[in-house]
Amino acid sequence: MRSLAERSSNQVSLSLFAQTLPNAFPAVEVAPQTWHSYARAFVQWFEYAGIARFKGQSILVLPEGSAGMGRLFGARLPIRTKGVFPQEPPGPCIALLVKLVNGPLKISALDRYERDSLRQLLALGAVEPDSAEAFRLARPDLISDGKVLQAVLMELLRRVPGGSDALDLLIQNPAASPVDVGRIFHSAHSADWKPATTQSVGKHFRAWARHAGISTRVRRQPDADMMSATTRLDTLFDI
């Protein structure tokens, strides 16, 4: 972890840390996504020891002698951050951000859907723990007058694994399909996803990108009249 941190301004993505673990444990053979779970478990130990802290989907290496946090025994994490952003549409997440402008919120005060949104905001790095049971805005400048500031959201989106490449694709090609966008995240996380998951992640990211000020458009379909005029039904198999 420290070696990675020295090469990346003291902040390491969870995805990159997970990718280094197979070389550290060559005798262990597990599915690629399992290394992501192991990486998260390691960082939770590092947090307890005062070595590192989670910051969204990144890991911030702390100065030597930093205080640890959390408890090992009898402790239950109240909420877990999903490994991939985005898995939720932006609307409910932004609504929760607006609520957080007024101050930290306790997890117990959130309904099931708001907790899903909270996980995504943690992965995005837009919120952070305020205590063991509450969360606050990590970027107070993200919301102004009840609206998302596009420049700040753009900055956060570029920091998530795959986010910068996906944004660049949409800037160059606003009609890039959800599958095209989803494949970037599929690769960034070395994920074992079904096609529907890849498409869903891409669809959600396109929506987040629009909130960051990027225009997207639906890929144009062939004109039905043109298709009928140029297509001949020569055999029974063409009907």
Rank of each mutant, 00 (worst) to 15 (best):
V127E: 04
W45E: 14
S187P: 00
A123P: 06
I79N: 00
V181E: 02
E114W: 04
L77E: 13
R219P: 07
D165H: 09
C93F: 02
R2W: 06
D225N: 13
A41K: 14
P104E: 06
D145Q: 13
R119K: 13
G162H: 03
F25M: 13
N23S: 13
R40V: 13
G182H: 07
R183K: 13
L77T: 11
S228R: 15
R159C: 11
L121C: 03
G182N: 06
E133H: 09
L233G: 05
P32Q: 00
R119C: 06
I171L: 10
G74W: 00
A176M: 07
P32N: 00
I59D: 01
G56D: 04
G125C: 05
H186C: 01
N102K: 15
T81G: 00
L236M: 08
V160M: 10
L170T: 02
A132D: 15
L169T: 02
L170A: 03
P86Q: 01
S190Y: 09
A132M: 12
A175M: 14
V160E: 08
F135Q: 03
P195Q: 11
P78L: 10
A207M: 14
S215L: 13
G103E: 07
R232F: 09
H204Y: 15
D116F: 13
V43Q: 07
R136C: 09
S228E: 11
S215A: 14
S190I: 06
N102A: 15
R7K: 14
L236D: 08
Q19W: 05
F185A: 01
